[in-house]
Amino acid sequence: MRVLGIETSCDETGVAIYDSERGLLSDLLYSQVAMHAEYGGVVPELASRDHVRKLLPLIREAMQQADTTREQIDGIAYTAGPGLVGALLVGAAIGRSLAWGWNLPAVGVHHLEGHLLAPMLEENPPPFPFIALLVSGGHTMLITVEGVGRYQIIGESLDDAVGEAFDKTAKLLDLGYPGGPALEQIATKGDGTRFRFPRPMTGRPGLDFSFSGLKTFAMNTLHANEITEQTRADIALAFQTAAVETLAIKCQRAIRETGIKQLVVAGGVSANRALRERLDRLALKERAQVAYPRLKFCTDNGAMIAYAGCLRLQAGEREPPAFEARARWPMDTVTAL
């Protein structure tokens, strides 16, 4: 089965073609990051306006690169939520209507399901069941995954997502937006012994997170010190170490509590090298396996939507000729395959 996948939940327009027999045939991304950076954050209305300009040309190009004609496509998948409603609606309207015109089945995919299945696009995909650590711009969650659509949230952030904390701290350090990657970059020049940030919510049992305090701690540290290049690097490193350590402690707990020895890490922050190194060490210690998506599939992309959509379409999932965009969509309410 060959599926066209469309992702427009936020500020990236992603289109990919995935074939269940031959794998990923094309994968294109147009990022609006530079445009939103001028505004200091994502402007939802501008994001929607850009998707409607970029999506159809990207679909044409994806088909060309995959050497795929309309007759060879068996279904269309688009992100139906959660995300920015206006942005989602662009992908949903175009994707659903195109499928209708081609008389093909369509399916609206849960964005986070896309993220957490992204590691399945790699060689040696992790087997079910696994624990997923989903760390993105909008979410921080620990989820047990028994199969596609069988998700149980066992821990989540009570306030800021970890990616959001990276971005806010980066903003504080004048690293622009979104600053996660830039923060990682300057942290390499930091002195890890200078500051020690707290590891929020690790002192008590449970798998929930809280990251808003780290950002405040970073602000107070910044104000209490002379602001030099070195200080900024030291704060970046201290922040990153605390965030990574906190995530690792909770992952370890989750592995021990569930007895599941397979960890999957996904979402934008899973691109972070310090996090990967730390979780690799954890896996070794716990005799567990850990899987990540390739770097470009950590952040939003069409490939993960094409893949998740393909699984759902193969399982016979179908939608009426209507589309929907959901700003919120609790992950544990998606249908199980």
Partner: peptide, 17 residues
């Protein structure tokens, strides 16, 4: 805005098909 884009999206999809 949203209504306008729904129409444009539908028309793009249908016309492209």
């Amino acid at each position: 805005f949203t209504g306008v884009r729904i129409g444009v999206g539908v028309v793009q999809g249908v016309a492209f098909s």
